[in-house]
């Protein structure tokens, strides 16, 4: 169910690819803001009018929302509900799953429409999936490369955090 217990590791190259896709999607979907959130509630990337938003809370609640909906899906014998839509008076939320691992959040207002958002999300979802699939491979291969960094953490470093 978890896929794996492995960490999500993000490298510079993928990060910039992801960000550039989000920026394109933002323009094409005429959206207000976009977020990419790990299913565990960690914010991966965001773009658009995010200044006034509490992005950390948004990420955590999105993940909670998707988790609860996933639980409902299983009760009904579905694997997952891959798209969620919340309609507000001004702003709307469109949530969709990418590669069953991350959540793409699109916030949009009257400048766009649900149809347009769905269409554009579907288009870019595939590209994002490719990145996350390759990221998983890369993290496995590169595993050796990361060793040094974590192995170098000393007990003193850890103690210093709590001073």
């Amino acid at each position: 169910m978890l896929g794996s217990q492995s960490s999500l590791v993000l490298f510079d190259e993928e990060f910039s690819n992801i960000t550039s896709i989000l920026e394109k999607l933002l323009v094409e979907a005429n959206a207000k803001a976009l977020f990419l959130v790990d299913k565990d509630g960690q914010l991966i990337s965001s773009t658009g009018e995010t200044d006034q938003m509490d992005t950390t809370s948004l990420a955590s609640l999105t993940a909670g929302n998707i988790a609860a909906t996933g639980g409902l899906a299983k009760l009904l014998g579905e694997k997952e509900f891959s798209v969620l839509f919340h309609e507000g008076e001004k702003d709307n939320l469109h949530l969709s799953l990418v590669a069953s691992r991350v959540i793409l959040v699109v916030i949009f207002d009257q400048r766009s429409s649900l149809g347009l958002v769905r269409l554009r999300v579907r288009k870019w979802n595939e590209e994002l999936e490719k990145i996350f699939n390759s990221l998983e491979k890369k993290a496995k291969e590169k595993g050796a490369g990361n060793q040094s960094f974590f192995a170098e953490i000393t007990d003193e470093d850890i103690d210093n955090l709590f001073r």
Binding site: Q5, S6, S7, L8, V9, L10, F11, D12, E14, F15, S16, D38, D40, G41, Q42, I44, N146
Partner: peptide, 14 residues
Amino acid sequence: MSFINYASREINLK
């Protein structure tokens, strides 16, 4: 599990 972001140099733990 943990999320390690080399791009923004962050470790996230739950």
